[in-house]
Design a protein around this nucleic acid. Structure first.
Lengths: 142, 142
DNA sequence: TTCCTTATTGATAATAATTCCTAATTAATA
DNA sequence: TATTAATTAGGAATTATTATCAATAAGGAA
């Protein structure tokens, strides 16, 4: 679990400016358990900080992604973001769109094995399972 | 490794028609080791069968996806397709865009564990590692 | 603090992947 | 072969994302 100060330090260190817009986006991403889209981040943040534009949200997410401070994932053609950057599995509900995280230590081993077999230099990982969450599952068993 | 006949049978069984367009797309996906985009599938297929439109490619891929005859994955905002539906890890080269598959038996276990922990009903899985392939890797070590 | 430089922002235009629309076509069945 | 409902072609529409660029403001220097 990373903290605001770490992220701010990491950006400042490389000469990036700490703006209220960036703070707001990072703050929201750290506090939420969701995996929001750029659009949703924009919508939520505007309630508190009306002076944040959608293009700034996109640019900030791109920066955070590059610095590996957030992960990006794709759900049905839409990018979703997550500041929880430890190795984990994303569970995507195909009905309600919710995303849950599941910690799983063995992912690291798999990554190492795959790197060895393939001779790739691995920089990013994404483990995703899709289906129906416990709530939605019941609707399909009626 | 699935065969053409299986796919054709599986579609016909559910009342879907076997059209030359669908055959061409399935045929190409079964023969290639690549993980082509809709655009590329269209381009390649038109050489042999000029009467296939891009929207048909999209619709056919959607159908094949629904019937779980191909998997879809996302590479930098572009959908890529793969008729190799066994459990495996996709290795995506962030430099040349190549995608390799690595078989890994332990994925099934992980899937079962995650389903148990989360109470999700798992329908689809996607294990993806990104980095540099062995060819591109060397360019970054000069 | 005040000024300066330049990264960052906001508004909108541009782009590109995908989906939608619908008349024309055709695979499958009798 | 005739029938008909599924499928297709092609272009328009949609939509998430990126690009553009003048205006603004963060951070360093004086």
């Amino acid at each position: 679990m990373q903290q605001m100060e770490q992220i701010v330090a990491s950006l400042r260190e490389e000469g990036f400016r700490i703006t209220p817009q960036r703070m707001a986006i990072v703050d929201y991403l750290l506090k939420t358990e969701d995996h929001p889209s750029a659009e949703l981040i924009h919508k939520v943040i505007r309630k508190k900080y009306p002076m944040v534009s959608l293009s700034t949200v996109y640019k900030t997410l791109e920066l955070l992604k590059e610095k590996k401070l957030v992960n990006e994932m794709d759900v049905e053609g839409e990018a979703r973001f997550d500041a929880h950057t430890d190795e984990h599995i994303n569970l995507v509900c195909m009905n309600c769109g919710k995303i849950d995280d599941v910690d799983e230590d063995s992912l690291k081993d798999i990554q190492v094995k795959a790197a060895r077999k393939s001779k790739y230099l691995i920089l990013k990982s994404s483990f995703e399972l899709s289906g129906y969450c416990s709530d939605c599952k019941s609707k399909f068993q009626a």
